[in-house]
Structures are given as C-alpha cells and as structure tokens.
C-alpha cells in the first residue's frame, strides 16, 4: 500500500496558481526527492501534504485514510479528529529547524511524544537518548537550541520528528539555512535514514545529494511535475527542454 497519495492537487494564493495539477504517490520505504527552480511549487506541495496549507482541489490520503475527498466538484477535508490522527503518520523537518528555544534538546524531543501521544515518560526518554546518540548528539541533551550550531539544531529537529515514530518524513530544504560546511553532517544523517528504509520526501536544491539518496526524483516547474523517474533517467537522460535547461544552470 502507498503511504501517501496525492491526486490532482490544485492550490492558489489569490490570483497566483501555485499548484496547477500535481499527483504523486509514495511507497513504503521509498525516498523521493523533489527538485525544481524557486517558485515552482515544491514547498507549497510539501505544506499541502503536511496540512499546513489547505488545497483548493484534489485528493490526499495517508495509508488509505482520506485527508481530502472530492465530492462532486468540491474538495472536502476530513473531520478534525481524523486529521489529528493522520498528523501522527508524518513528520516534517523545516528549513529553519523551528526548534522550541525555551526547551532543552531533550525536552524538544520528548515533549510531543509525552504530551501529544501520551506515552510513558521513561520509555520516551530511553528512545530519545538512543536517537540522539545515533545522530551524534550525545551530551547535548541539556543544551538549549541557541547553544548549538545550525547543523546540530537541524539534527535535533530530525530527532524531534523521528521521536513520534512517523511512517513518513518530509524535509523542506533541510540544508538551505546552513553554512556550506554544515550541510554535510545533515545530509549524512538523512542518508543513514534512507539506508534504514525510512520513507522520505525531500525538497532540495542539493542535486548531487538527490541523485545519491533518492529512489525517485520529481522535477517541478511552474506548478506541474514536469519529469519524474529514477535519478539516472532524470539527471542523465532528461526528456524535457525545461529539465535540460535547469540542469545546465546547475552544472554551470
């Protein structure tokens, strides 16, 4: 079964049509990279999938459970309760981390599992400690976010998302806010998750990384998915002029 299905998604902000007709599905264990120029709708697509924005039209479902359904020519969202449940299926890592500055690293990680999922504190702390260690953050448990480097903060935010045991993890340009020398450590962490078969959707400008880590690459342009396929297909044998153009600019 697909973890996520997006069908014919449309989204406008005022007169600006950002998503014109986008469909994609994510299999269990699949790693998807979404690439494309700024303003092509990549981030909006991610924000629609993670319920931060409401779509105007189109169907979204997680594990077969509907977020939106098309009834006649109307798109209807599921009940609040259902949406709350579905929010437990996915995690999102933001470009700007969005850690809670008044919480320690550990509290950032364990608070949602305890106060949202109502899990036992002892179990959550044990799991969190293991995750932090895996991400090379042992010893940082009692630090506050402002005491960490950008790369460390982003790794904490990945741990925070993982602590809720999501079925799928979204990344919205996870390294764009980082100094170049710090992107490596974050990409390494994402790579290690891919090796463990974590299902992931990554919006990124790191072409080399997308090529390495993704099973499927989607190229977005002007509100449409223009091209998709394996990294080899998309990067080495682009079919559309738009994609060739985009790659030329990236490769200098």
């Amino acid at each position: 079964m697909n973890i996520l299905e997006l069908k014919n998604i449309k989204k406008s902000f005022g007169d600006l049509e950002v998503l014109k007709d986008v469909s994609l599905s994510v299999r269990k264990g699949e790693v998807i990279a979404i690439i494309g120029p700024s303003g092509s709708g990549k981030s909006t697509l991610l924000r629609c999938a993670t319920l931060l924005e409401r779509v105007d039209r189109g169907e979204i479902n997680y594990l077969g459970e509907a977020v939106t359904e098309c009834v006649g020519d109307k798109t209807v969202y599921a009940s609040k309760k259902q949406l709350q449940k579905i929010k437990g299926y996915f995690g999102l890592v933001f470009q700007n981390f969005n850690l809670f500055p008044h919480y320690t690293v550990l509290k950032n990680v364990i608070d949602a599992p305890i106060s949202v999922q109502k899990r036992k504190k002892d179990d959550v702390i044990k799991e969190a400690a293991a995750l932090l260690e895996k991400m090379g953050l042992s010893g940082k448990e009692n630090n506050y976010p402002h005491q960490l480097s950008g790369g460390q903060q982003q790794r904490v935010s990945i741990v925070r998302a993982l602590a809720l045991n999501p079925q799928i993890l979204f990344f919205d340009e996870p390294t764009s806010a980082l100094d170049p020398e710090l992107t490596g450590e974050v990409l390494k962490v994402i790579r290690s998750l891919a090796e463990e078969n974590m299902t992931m959707v990554i919006v990124t400008h790191e072409m080399q990384f997308a090529r390495e880590v993704a099973d499927t690459v989607y190229f977005m342009n002007d509100g449409f998915i223009v091209e998709s396929g394996t990294p080899e297909e998309v990067f080495d044998h682009p079919k559309t002029e738009r994609m060739k153009h985009f790659l030329e600019r990236y490769n200098g």
């Binding site: 993670t50 437990g88 809670f100 949602a112 998302a161």
Partner: peptide, 23 residues
C-alpha cells in the same frame, strides 16, 4: 512570534491550547 513555531507545534500534533501555553 514567528509562524514557524506555530507550524512546528501543529505538525507535532499539539492542540491549539497546548501550543499557546507550552510553546
């Protein structure tokens, strides 16, 4: 307050009341 704090709390599943008082 930055929108990002609300969005992070939303994605993590915090209720509106929890978001306001805790975050």
């Amino acid at each position: 307050m930055s929108k990002g704090q609300y969005e992070a709390a939303d994605v993590l599943g915090y209720s509106k009341t929890q978001t306001f008082f805790k975050i």
